[in-house]
Amino acid sequence: MSERILGGLLLFISIAGIWIARSFEAPFSYEPVGPRAFPMLILALLGISAIALILEKKSDTTWAPPPVMKRIGVLFVIILIYAWLFDKLGFVLATALMVIPIARFFSATWKQAVAGGVGLGVGLFILFDRLLDVALPTGLWLNNILG
């Protein structure tokens, strides 16, 4: 069933994409193939493959059991929030806050998780920002403290 749903979604994407791509026209054209031919070709092939996927007789995907799926979903959301807060909170704080819940998922104790969070946050900051010259955001709060 999941294959069929995905196939339907891809078919929709390919049709919508072709509809969008129709408007890609160059104001001055000096070559026979403009900017829309290649995307439209790819989208058409994608549509055909999507139909093939819908019609294909293959065993369905087995998803992870619901509790595991839920944890994977939460992991994804944590990384997403981490990505969003990366420069707002600064690397050290954002990393520590990301590490603690993820470490708990992989069955660390609270003590290990907090130590790991602080350790990774501070350790990686020193490694990259100070030693390897890869600039990392310190975050507004730390800037204020450091003046």
Partner: peptide, 16 residues
């Protein structure tokens, strides 16, 4: 528990 968040952090460092 240390490896997974560590990899996540290092990956983001590179992109940022």
């Amino acid at each position: 528990w240390l490896l997974v968040p560590g990899v996540a952090a290092i990956s983001m460092v590179g992109v940022y």
